[in-house]
Design a protein around this nucleic acid. Structure first.
Length: 260
DNA sequence: ATGACGAGCGTGGCTCGA
């Protein structure tokens, strides 16, 4: 089973690339982030025509997440629990019935948090605390789950080509990294880091200053697995070639392969 | 050393991102 995540940076601007990648990716479930669209504006019909079930949690202009799947979800929940006043659409949960029991997949778009020292950064940390609370609940339930998305966290120095560029950035602050590490310490597995010893493994390259041709990237799109799924991890894939397409997103798809 | 990109909203130039 293949589960994927991709920050597409605008679904309407990226529809051709999205359809082309969906046709080739082989995934069963795809989490999207930054759809930058309200639910009614999502190009649902085009994606459904290609054989996908579509669930969205959008908002006007910014943010927005979605789940695409070959089989319909048994249950969908929109929003990250614990934030009744949170109007930003950054989290959607799907649950599927599988031969191995229920599988829960979240597509998440964690707040960027810049600039540090502002309300944006404290919102990021509060959001991460809510995510930790949810992960603790799901672990207690002993349900199989995947937290996939754009975490906006550079976990370690080796996850940035030029780490000095990021020391004053919300993505690399000790508090952001510690909150991410707390998720791992709960027993969740960072699937890419667990299966890759290749240096310069990145998922994002800025549009500016020739970051892509210079391979000046960072690894910020992560797939975290519950302990039972960690035992089924067969491999990961980072579809870097998509970054060289015409009108690319600045992020590329990341996938996990789970043994049946 | 500096500047450099792109999407959305909505039609000029902001906001937001990373």
């Amino acid at each position: 089973m293949l589960v994927a995540t991709w920050n597409i940076n605008g679904v309407k601007a990226r529809i051709d690339a999205l359809k082309a990648w969906l046709d080739e990716c082989g995934a069963d479930i795809v989490g999207l982030q930054e759809i930058k669209s309200v639910d009614e504006g999502f190009p649902r019909a085009e994606i459904e025509a290609a054989g996908w079930h579509v669930e969205t949690h959008g908002q006007k202009g910014f943010n927005g997440v979605a789940l695409l799947s070959r089989k319909p979800a048994a249950r969908i929940e929109r929003g990250l629990p614990g934030g009744d006043a949170d109007e930003q659409s950054r989290f959607i949960i799907g649950e599927w019935e599988t031969d191995r029991g229920p599988l829960r997949v979240a597509s998440l778009y964690l707040p960027n948090g810049n600039p540090i020292g502002t309300e944006k950064f404290s919102y990021k940390l509060r959001w991460m605390a809510r995510l930790e609370t949810l992960a603790r609940q799901w672990l207690a339930e002993e349900v199989s789950f995947i937290l996939a998305g754009d975490y906006n966290v550079i976990p370690q120095p080796e996850d940035a080509r030029n780490v000095a560029d990021w020391v004053n950035d919300a993505l690399y602050q000790p508090e952001s990294r510690a909150a991410y590490r707390r998720l791992l310490h709960l027993g969740l597995l960072d699937a890419v880091r667990a299966t890759t010893d290749q240096p310069q493994t990145y998922t994002f390259w800025d549009y500016q200053a020739g970051a892509w041709p210079k391979n000046n990237g960072i690894r910020i799109d992560h797939i975290l697995l519950s302990p039972d799924l960690s035992a089924r991890l067969a491999g990961v894939r980072i579809d870097k070639h998509v970054r060289a397409w015409e009108k690319p997103s600045d992020h590329v798809p990341v996938l996990v392969d789970l043994k049946d």
